[in-house]
């Protein structure tokens, strides 16, 4: 009960406020066109008619939430029911393409990130030479060159999943390196000395002390990494749209002024991000509880 009052109610209030703002924005932004239409048809527009009109246009400047939800249902759940889940017009199809690129990039990036962090922690030369560049690279807008990577890789014959995954990998790689380096170094001097008194080597120390104590850090960076990975995959889909994917849906939508389509792709991407981050959070909760670290 307290949990509901303390957390659920405030969140619901804020979400409700956002949706209300959205509807109001739809009225404000779509009103000019509605007035224009009414003037051409030579009829008066009462306020209620105006509201109804602005919430049901075909190509509104800002589609109302229910229009977007209807579009999402039409292109996902409805198509699944009709057995056309993987048709080219289905969001399930496009979402799946984006998701597979995201996951491939995320797994590769996390793997490389963990390995590099282990190297940095154990090798002083590597720490001193690589770490400053890892941090500096955070300040560089890598995402902005994503389309270039895709185009160039396409021109040498790597098409489809791989180029996008490389961008995703790149984006998910950095948070993992930084978080894991911090995590592997988190055991304090006392714990490290304890290992030394047992004459544990670097490998034993890594397995039985450093890795377990780095878990909370790892999961925190994994959440950032998977969200970044999804963003990378979507941006990677922008330049080449025949392969499909949520990013391609957005671009095609923007070519043809299909605002409802853009918003539905956007909301699907948001839902996907929420699911992925939530999933990592779930695994985090279970793992940390098993390890007795849950707070």
């Amino acid at each position: 009960m307290t949990w509901m009052r303390q957390h659920l109610m405030p969140v619901l209030t804020v979400v409700a406020a956002i949706i209300a703002l959205w509807y109001a924005g739809a009225v404000a932004l779509n009103a000019p066109w509605a007035y224009d239409q009414a003037k051409r048809a030579d009829r008066d527009l009462s306020f209620s008619a105006l509201v109804a009109e602005t919430w049901s246009q075909d190509k509104p400047k800002l589609p109302a939430p229910h229009q977007v939800v209807a579009e999402i249902w039409k292109t996902s759940g409805d198509m699944v029911l009709r057995g056309k889940a993987f048709s080219k017009r289905s969001l399930v199809f496009h979402g799946w393409i984006t998701l597979s690129a995201t996951m491939l990039g995320f797994i590769l990036g996390t793997g490389f990130g963990i390995l590099l962090a282990i190297g940095i922690v154990h090798n002083r030369a590597m720490d001193m030479s690589v770490m400053p560049w890892v941090i500096a690279s955070q300040t560089i807008p890598i995402l902005a060159i994503a389309p270039m990577v895709v185009v160039v890789m396409n021109s040498i014959g790597f098409a489809g999943l791989v180029p996008k995954s490389i961008i995703s990998m790149y984006l998910s790689f950095f948070p993992v390196v930084v978080g894991m380096t911090k995590g592997l170094r988190s055991p304090d001097a006392m714990e490290m000395d304890q290992m030394r008194t047992w004459n544990a080597g670097a490998w034993k120390t890594l397995i039985s002390l450093r890795l377990p104590s780095s878990m909370p850090y790892l999961f925190t960076s994994l959440k950032v990494a998977i969200a970044a990975s999804l963003v990378g995959a979507i941006v990677g889909e922008l330049p080449i749209n025949q392969d499909g994917g949520l990013g391609a849906r957005m671009l095609v939508g923007s070519y043809y002024g299909q605002t409802i389509q853009i918003w539905s792709a956007l909301l699907t991407a948001a839902a996907l991000a929420a699911c992925l981050v939530g999933l990592v959070g779930l695994v985090q909760g279970i793992t940390l509880r098993r390890m007795g670290m849950a707070r």
């Binding site: 995402l143 959440k223 950032v224 969200a227 999804l230 963003v231 979507i234 941006v235 949520l246 990013g247 957005m250 853009i262 792709a265 956007l266 991407a269 948001a270 991000a273 929420a274 981050v277």
Partner: peptide
């Protein structure tokens, strides 16, 4: 903050 806002 975790969403692909860039899609906007």
């Amino acid at each position: 903050a975790a969403l692909p806002i860039i899609g906007m």
